[in-house]
Design a protein around this nucleic acid. Structure first.
Lengths: 139, 139
DNA sequence: CTTGCTCCTCCAGCCACTAGAGGAATTAAG
DNA sequence: CTTAATTCCTCTAGTGGCTGGAGGAGCAAG
């Protein structure tokens, strides 16, 4: 099975330019080339790229994916490291959700209090102008 | 009241380099300079920068802040536009929270199913390898 | 043979900063 | 007054994770 970068792109949903970028940063190996100099991929490449895409969709950073790919290649090792990476990322996501929720509540309070009058009396503008207006001063 | 960029930075919590960046991108006006060529700020600058910082902390993009600043300068206008910008941003934040929550649930399911054995049988790796494993296929 | 598509490399840009080099000006201490 | 420390200046480049475009070559179909 010999596949062009376009076919690979179609099968994985990753843009061809992004595939080349992954090659540049070492996430994807440099594949063999055809006589005309075009990249030629096989099933292993499809699997690896699908892995990368899925990990990216789950928000893993490229560095973390590099580690996960390295671990994936060593099925004999204990998976404690995999667990560490995934839990670290989960904690990170939790933190982001918390921060966004705090932000959301302040935003929605701000919007709710807008009296739809003139800019001069607008609560949104007031809140932005005066940090003392915040309920929580943690930011 | 004549203040150096360092003082301004201290009072607002915005790095001096960032203040200069804001000047470059037009969020902050170019201030008058001292004889020696240093930037000299006044109370209006402090207020404007505080506004910017607060808006950034609330996650508003620089373009949105530019609009908000322009509206802030026209207190006579109706604040409908302010409302639109704030609500648009709120909707954006809501979307981000939803996406992060979906992601979080998949991540935590993945981590929970890890049997702490070898990488070869690790659920985390399996899930990443096979998109079909996902409960929701929406990503 | 030509048309149109895909692919190639290289370079620039996105966002919102942040960091560093190399030099000038100001301030504090001696 | 001199020196040393600190702050400030401009300019450039880097961050992450791509994305888009220029300009050119390969390739398949009619």
């Amino acid at each position: 099975m010999e596949i062009t970068i376009g076919e690979l792109s179609k099968r994985t949903g990753v843009l061809a330019t992004t595939v080349r970028y992954y090659e540049d940063v070492g996430l994807m190996p440099a594949p063999p080339r055809t006589a005309g100099g075009r990249r030629s991929y096989g099933t292993a490449h499809v699997a690896r790229l699908a892995f990368i895409r899925h990990a990216r969709q789950l928000g893993f950073e490229v560095d973390a994916i590099r580690e996960l790919l390295a671990l994936n290649a060593r099925p004999d090792l204990p998976c404690a490291e995999v667990d560490v990476i995934a839990r670290r990322h989960l904690a990170d996501v939790d933190g982001r959700i918390e921060r966004l929720k705090a932000l959301r509540s302040e935003l929605s309070r701000m919007v709710d209090e807008c009296g739809h009058g003139r800019v001069g009396e607008c609560r949104v503008i007031e809140v932005l102008s005066d940090h003392g207006e915040c309920l929580g001063h943690d930011h």
